[in-house]
Amino acid sequence: MTEEEMIVCRCEEVSYEELLQTATKYNCSPRELKLRTRAGMGYCGGRTCRGMVDTVASTIKAQERTQISLKYQPPIRPITFGDLGRQDK
């Protein structure tokens, strides 16, 4: 396997090359890079590739110090629809 084909986001199968090209072409922030490629938007919630997406985007613009660059959204762990919708008595 070549470095270009190397997968960075496993859930959405986004390659190293796709991330680099997208970041360069659109001057992406981490969030824009994520939204354009779907890297970090799969089942694991970005637990594996979040840092790598940040790092690729930081080649365009240095990471923000005072704010986490890729926002966390609840639920932060996978949860079934049944449990999510259940009413606690």
């Binding site: 190397m6 590739c49 949860i79 606690d88």
Partner: peptide, 26 residues
């Protein structure tokens, strides 16, 4: 998943996670 808990004092002691490094074939 199943329950909701309440408290006035909540401590987060969730520790650390590992960063991966991508390598072709990983």
């Amino acid at each position: 998943d199943k329950h909701t808990f309440n408290t006035d004092h909540l401590l987060l002691a969730t520790g650390a996670a590992e960063s991966p490094v991508p390598v072709p074939g990983w």
